[in-house]
Write a protein that binds this DNA or RNA. Structure first.
Length: 884
DNA sequence: TAACTCAACATTTTT
DNA sequence: TGTTGAGTTA
């Protein structure tokens, strides 16, 4: 996530680089064709034998076990390029799933480079979630949604659940909404709907009402026409199960399925993949006859960019493929040629195309078990897909022998792995061993690492090539402080996100409500922001009414302002809100969306609210709002923008600045650096006590994998640190070195000799650290002080968007957000006042909570005109009166 | 409704 | 320790 708002990213996937496509029949093109017929395509050169095999084994299920730094992404992208350029499938027939937007983006770019043209025709390359959205928008009605459904983020979800808990009459302190949101998330990761959750789970929450609450939540989402993240996976699964015909459509469509980071798939994702990958016949993969059908037309705009004849596949494949496949090639489509027109798919019909699934992953890098990832998915692959080909990539191109040796020895302590051993062919006697350093305390640790970095800097190393990878984010602070003092540029990766900022979420709520009038959460968020005198009471009234009538709150507001239900002041205020939104909705079609966005923020008084705010962070917030509008420019419409934000919460990093990266081990996965510092290798912190307590042996193994990930991020230098004293929650605790240190192989490790001694600290303060004692860590498992004793470092504080870069300490005022303004939305539900009124007649005697008794004088739809005994004649909604 | 006090709590995080 | 959220007070 980025620093300084100058480089706040534009959010969408940037258009893939466009290169002029050679004229299909030009001379150059012919020459290229000739060349390509004569030898292997360029993109295949430079692959090692295993990689080549992984790229060329196109038929049947393939599992690529790709160790760290073995060219995993390259294999995936080349494989896709290979499929495309040999004409085996149209871009639109390839389903390629990643976990992060970043990975998806990178893959798109790299395929573009390989294939030599923009990959616009790859509509199904994306994250599980973005593909899920795409499916859902097409088939929303099959799961009870409309296609313009909203995607709620965690914050919305929590607020919603809180409402539900209160509506149930439960104490929302005893039963925190956040916790329940977490439970729902866990269930959804496992693909469980309310009826399927374990009885124990159901009973554990809300006095045993867990299941009901979950069900109520799902209902509420449907009413709101909204989805949470989990639903983006679960709804498609439900839809496919309930509609085999639709599923079949996608079976016919997707000829190739590729999955990145397979070790991170959770059960729901696994189910999703199975549905798409497995044919109803239930034959084994190898038996299936692949005879490609002409691709559905109209799925991808394919550019003629390559003059190779796709139907003449490169010869090298012939050696790899069996007859059926050879036959298949004969009538392969020629996607890169074809200027395939748009049109509706005409049945792939009787001939079933093979779907070939290729999963790439590394069981040793599975570090998201706590988030529902099932390593088991990867361990079980061969059983799930009989006849699967398993290809191991063990040739490492990233790290030195020592680094690999250390990592390998460490990870070998895990059981239940598929077992790979990385090796490198580059050996260099000058390579540094992995260094292990001890420091007296965390301050010294930070100081010493700062020293080392300055040293590297003097040796002309780029700061960009240096990273500090910590186990827990509270560790970052010490480094930040130190680097600010030193004037060392750094960037923190991970942490608070742009879109999670208060002002951004408010603004987004306005936009959401304009685009999606049924978005009650958005409505409640902004109805009284800025303050309009529409407080709890008003909103509660509205809420009850809306719930009773089963209509959105904005609609309820529209009705209610026709009546005397509200006090004149509130009524007027609400009237204004409703009118504003009506107007904006009209403008949605006609006004450019950035202009409209600005207009909304101005006319609603939202901008003015911050302008009037005298607090320190107000200017930063206004700046953020400007940035928000600027970032909308990259999108075609407001809707497009909203969708993007919902799915892509992250933002681009400023890569221009030379800075040390500080991040957690988790967010370092997939990255590499010349020099990596790994501080905090102490029992209790790493492995984390909580992982041990909650995960037992499995937890320990996951921690070890995390250590493995950390070490393997390093290309040339890896420095591990531990301290003897660490401050936790303000209290100093003495600590034991991590057991992982002991699991490093001595021949690849160098224990640093007292290399630090700063102003009286350090000097052997750690004693021998137990590092070379006989059995130093014998009892290190229990470190009671650690339990629940972790310093909390709130994300909101660390201002990740402003860069505190040393020399020019440009701390940009991106909301160092003081205490967040309190949300009142949570409180709104309370009890439902409405008893369903039946039909009234003129003359009926009725009672109204506010106005007392009266007689109905007139009826107009659901609005009643009543002559109250005391209050006189009023117009009220029928939901608010009852017969007496 | 803003400003205050007090108590609870404190891995890892994508989408 | 330092942050957050809730409840209280002016």
């Amino acid at each position: 996530m980025s620093k300084g708002f100058d480089d706040i990213p534009f959010f969408d996937e940037e258009p893939a680089p466009r290169k002029p496509a050679p004229a299909a029949n030009g001379i150059a093109a012919r020459a290229m064709a000739a060349r390509d017929n004569a030898k292997r395509p360029d993109y295949l050169s430079g692959l090692n034998p295993e990689q080549t095999e992984a790229v060329e084994t196109l038929e049947g299920p393939v599992l690529v076990l790709a160790g760290a730094g073995t060219g995993k992404t390259r294999v995936l992208t080349t494989r896709i390029a290979h499929i495309l350029s040999t004409g085996r499938a149209f871009p639109s027939q390839i389903l390629a799933v990643t976990f992060t937007n970043k990975a998806a983006r990178e893959m798109k770019e790299r395929i573009g480079v390989l294939v030599g043209h923009a990959v616009e025709g790859m509509p199904w390359l994306g994250t599980f979630h973005s593909i899920g959205v795409k499916l859902l928008r097409r088939h929303a009605e099959l799961v009870g949604l409309r296609s313009d459904f909203t995607i709620l983020d965690t914050d919305d979800v929590v607020r919603l659940i809180k409402q539900l808990i209160q509506a149930e009459g439960l104490d929302d302190k005893r039963w925190p909404a956040k916790q329940f949101a977490g439970m729902i998330d866990t269930w959804k990761n496992k693909g469980l709907d309310p009826s399927q959750i374990p009885e124990g789970d159901a009973r554990a929450f809300a006095n045993g009402k867990g299941r009901e609450l979950y069900a109520a939540y799902q209902n509420r989402l449907l009413t709101l026409n909204a989805c949470d993240f989990g639903d983006l996976l679960l709804h498609p699964i439900r839809m496919f199960r309930a509609n085999p015909d639709v599923l079949r459509e996608y079976h016919d469509k997707f000829r190739y399925i590729l999955v990145d980071e397979y070790q991170d798939t959770n059960t729901a994702q696994y189910m999703w993949l199975r549905l798409l990958a497995q044919r109803p016949q239930g034959k084994s993969w190898s038996q299936r006859n692949p005879s490609p059908t002409p691709p559905h037309k109209g799925e991808g705009q394919v550019r003629a960019a390559d003059s190779r004849s796709p139907s003449q596949s490169s010869e090298e494949q012939a050696s790899n493929l069996d007859d059926r496949n050879a036959a298949a090639r004969q009538d392969s489509p020629s996607p890169l040629w074809g200027g395939v027109g748009e049109g509706k798919s005409q049945g792939a019909g009787d001939r079933k195309p093979t779907v070939n699934i290729c999963c790439v992953g590394d069981d040793d890098q599975s570090i998201y078990g706590w988030r529902g990832a099932e390593v088991d998915n990867i361990l079980r692959f061969e059983k799930d897909f009989p006849g699967a080909k398993v290809i191991k990539l063990e040739r490492n191109y990233r790290s030195t022998e020592h680094i690999l040796g250390a990592a390998a020895h460490l990870i070998a302590h895990n059981e239940g792995r598929l077992g790979k051993t990385l090796f490198t062919e580059r050996t260099n006697p000058d390579d540094e061993k992995v260094h292990v350093h001890a420091a007296w305390d965390s301050e010294e640790e930070a100081r010493a690492i700062g020293e080392e970095i300055e040293q590297l800097q003097r040796q002309k190393h780029n700061l960009n090539d240096i990273a500090i990878l910590v186990r827990a984010s509270f560790q970052m602070r010490e480094f930040e402080d130190r680097f600010v003092t030193l004037g060392l540029n750094y960037r923190v990766i991970g942490g608070p996100r742009f879109y999670e900022r208060l002002e951004i979420r408010d603004a987004m709520a306005y936009f959401r409500l304009v685009c999606q009038p049924a978005d009650d959460l958005a409505f409640e968020r902004i109805v009284n922001t800025p303050k309009r005198g529409l407080g709890d009471t008003t909103v509660r009234t509205l809420h009850d009414y809306a719930r009773a009538r089963d209509i959105p709150m904005l609609a309820a507001a529209t009705e209610i302002i026709e009546t005397d239900e509200l006090k004149p002041k509130a009524r007027k205020a609400l009237f204004d809100v409703v009118t504003d939104f009506r107007r904006w909705q009209t403008l949605l079609e006609t006004t450019p969306h950035t202009e409209l966005a600005e207009q909304i923020l101005d006319e609603s008084g939202y901008t003015a609210m911050w302008q009037a705010d005298k607090s320190a962070e107000a200017p930063g917030r206004l700046e953020n709002l400007k940035e928000l509008i600027r970032s909308m420019e990259a999108f075609e419409s407001m809707r497009g923008f909203l969708e993007h934000v919902a799915l892509v919460m992250d933002a681009e990093q400023n890569e221009d600045m030379d800075a040390v990266s500080i991040m957690t081990l988790h967010s370092a996965k997939g990255l590499e650096f010349d020099t990596v510092f790994l501080p905090g290798w102490e029992e209790g912190l790493f492995p984390h006590q909580r992982a041990l307590d909650e995960g037992g042996r499995a937890g320990l193994e996951e921690e070890r994998r995390l250590a493995y990930v950390g070490i393997t991020r390093a290309k040339r230098r890896c420095h591990i640190w531990f301290v003897s004293n660490r401050r936790i929650h303000g209290l100093w605790q003495s600590t034991m070195p991590s057991r992982f240190l002991d699991e490093l192989p001595i021949d690849h490790v160098e224990v640093a000799e007292q290399d630090v001694s700063y102003g009286g600290y350090g000097r052997g303060g750690y004693g021998q650290s137990g590092f070379d004692k006989a059995d130093p860590f014998e009892n290190s498992y229990q470190t009671p002080g650690w339990k629940r004793a972790q310093q909390h470092r709130s994300e909101a504080t660390r201002d990740n968007w402003g860069t505190r870069s040393g020399h020019a300490v440009e701390r940009i005022g991106y909301g160092e957000s003081g205490p967040r303004t309190r949300m009142i939305e949570g409180e709104l539900v309370a009890k439902s006042t409405t008893s369903e009124p039946s039909r009234f007649n003129i003359g009926d005697r009725v009672f109204h909570l506010k106005f007392g008794n009266g007689n109905i004088a007139a009826i107009e739809g659901n609005k009643l005109t009543i002559n109250f005994d005391r209050a006189g004649q009023k117009r009220v909604l029928e939901g608010f009166v009852e017969r007496v």
